[in-house]
């Protein structure tokens, strides 16, 4: 073994640690931005309540991480954070359960399909948005006995808009390599 190769072996873990730390910090910051964005964006830009940045982040993490356990925990974290900013009349855990399932299923899908294609990503985002909205509506009806409206057509349109937003967002996240090595 030459000296050059031994130096490379010594340097590489340091770079990986730095990359790993950057990924963790970037992920936390992006999650925070997504939640604050959902909290504040409708004040800045009216009629943007349909934008689900936390959901898109959960889907992306699940698709690119290829780990169901990590994805479900990430989804649970994001969902519980959203629940804590929800109206106090709603108990904590509604979004937590929903996004836990989204993260898990997104990671499960990524194990069977090639999710690098933008078309597949758009379709999956549309599907998961619809699943997320419908499952949340079912939980509020079943668990809380609250009757809230559910418009499939409107949900579909919002899901399509979120899917369009997801294309550039996922490309940016790909460049940042937030999800880490798969």
């Amino acid at each position: 073994m030459t000296e050059a190769s031994s130096e490379q072996l010594l340097r590489r873990p340091v770079q990986e640690i730095w990359t790993s730390r950057f990924q963790v910090i970037a992920l936390v910051v992006l999650t925070l931005i997504a939640i604050i964005g959902k909290f504040y964006l409708p004040r800045l830009l009216p009629h943007t309540e349909w934008l689900e940045l936390p959901l898109l982040l959960t889907v992306y993490f699940g698709l690119m991480r290829h780990s169901q356990i990590q994805a479900l925990f990430f989804g649970a974290f994001v969902g519980l954070a959203e629940d804590s900013l929800a109206p106090a009349t709603l108990p904590i855990g509604m979004y937590g359960i929903t996004k836990t399932l989204v993260g898990y299923f997104a990671a499960a899908v990524s194990l069977r399909f090639n999710v690098e294609s933008s078309v597949i990503r758009v379709i999956l985002c549309l599907f998961f948005y619809f699943f997320h909205a419908f499952f949340y509506w079912v939980m509020r009806r079943a668990l809380l006995a609250q009757t809230i409206p559910f418009d499939p057509q409107e949900t579909f349109v919002h899901g399509a808009l979120n899917s369009l937003i997801a294309i550039p967002l996922f490309l940016i996240l790909d460049k940042m390599k937030v999800s880490g090595p798969s």
Binding site: Q68, S84, A88, P91, I92, I97, T100, A108, L143
Partner: peptide, 26 residues
């Protein structure tokens, strides 16, 4: 994986049920 999923979901369900039952605000 499925076991962890069930555990996490059930834990959140129990926590949610506790809140609804006690009408407590966390």
């Amino acid at each position: 994986n499925l076991t962890v999923l069930v555990v996490v979901v059930v834990a959140q369900l129990l926590y949610l049920a506790y809140q609804v039952k006690t009408n407590g605000d966390e």
